[in-house]
């Protein structure tokens, strides 16, 4: 081990300027990532990526990035002109840092800055299957029934469906939900789905769910547009299946909500 350490030291000695440039690049990335976390928290973009229940973890991350970045900058400034290691290791020997490694760790920063932040939309939906949705939402419990019908969101409704044997008992209950328009070629001309993404942890586990809606002008609604649907529930046929369907009285195009996802 000592031999390796000395070798590394030699190497650093020869290439001191390069080492320092790399150390500064790493420092800049650490501080940059800290700023990126703060930006996501302040701008509200964080809700595009993760379940806000764990939003506090982003504060932890920002703090730790600033701590490490600040410390690294401090060490670099103090050691200016000196040929010293920032630290030496005993059990920990790192592969010599390379520009490739630094570039990879900079990728989230690059993508986060260059690609405009957007929540998952209708383009990310591959298919919404009513039954798949039911199995996905089955972990809800009977408390769904204590939410008054007009306050239920898409997820609450699917859970209620899942726990109802006789769909006709839901007939004429008032419905008031928001979601984005989703339709497939085989939907009836007066049918669409009010869809939402549910996320448990972060968008990697996002799952599209949807409530079938009957609305005379359904065909005119642009795919993916956010809508506010008001109407009542009525059991009926949707894609060959018997299911409760929202019979819409009004469908109003709205701005996408601040928090686009539902958390099961």
């Amino acid at each position: 081990m000592t031999a390796v350490a000395e070798h590394v030291h030699d190497h650093e000695h020869h290439d001191h300027a390069r080492e320092r440039r790399m150390a500064w690049a790493k420092t800049a990335i650490l501080i940059g990532l800290g700023l990126y976390f703060v930006y996501n928290i302040v701008s509200g973009n964080l809700s595009n990526y993760i379940n806000l229940r764990f939003g506090w973890l982003s504060y932890v991350a920002a703090g730790l990035f600033f701590l490490m970045g600040g410390f690294s900058a401090y060490t670099l400034i103090r050691s200016r002109g000196q040929h010293t290691h920032a630290h030496d290791h005993d059990n920990h020997l790192h592969p010599a840092p390379s520009w490739g490694m630094i570039a990879i760790v900079a990728l989230p920063l690059v993508l986060g800055t260059l690609v405009p932040s957007q929540p998952l939309g209708v383009e990310a939906v591959s298919a919404i299957d009513l039954n798949a949705a039911a199995s996905q939402v089955s972990n809800g419990d009977a408390t769904m029934f204590t939410i008054s019908p007009e306050n239920r969101n898409v997820l609450d409704w699917l859970r209620v469906f899942n726990q109802t044997d006789d769909y006709s008992t839901l007939n004429n209950l008032p419905v008031d939900v928001i979601g984005f328009v989703y339709s497939e070629p085989d939907f009836g001309a007066d049918q669409f789905m009010t869809a939402r993404f549910t996320i448990s942890c972060c968008v990697a586990d996002a799952n599209a769910i949807g409530l079938p809606v009957v609305w005379a002008n359904a065909a005119a609604l642009p795919q993916g547009e956010w809508v506010h649907v008001r109407g009542h529930m009525q059991a009926g046929e949707f894609r060959g299946e018997t299911t409760p369907i929202v019979h819409a009285e009004t469908v109003e195009v709205i701005e996408s909500p601040q928090n686009p996802y539902l958390y099961p």
């Binding site: 976390f37 990526y49 986060g112 405009p116 998952l120 383009e123 990697a204």
Partner: peptide, 20 residues
């Protein structure tokens, strides 16, 4: 865009634990 959102979702959720 979808790829970036998913990638950053994992990264933002994972980074605090990687740091810890």
């Amino acid at each position: 865009n979808i790829f970036t959102t998913r990638f950053l979702g994992i990264f933002l959720e994972a980074a605090p634990f990687l740091l810890l």
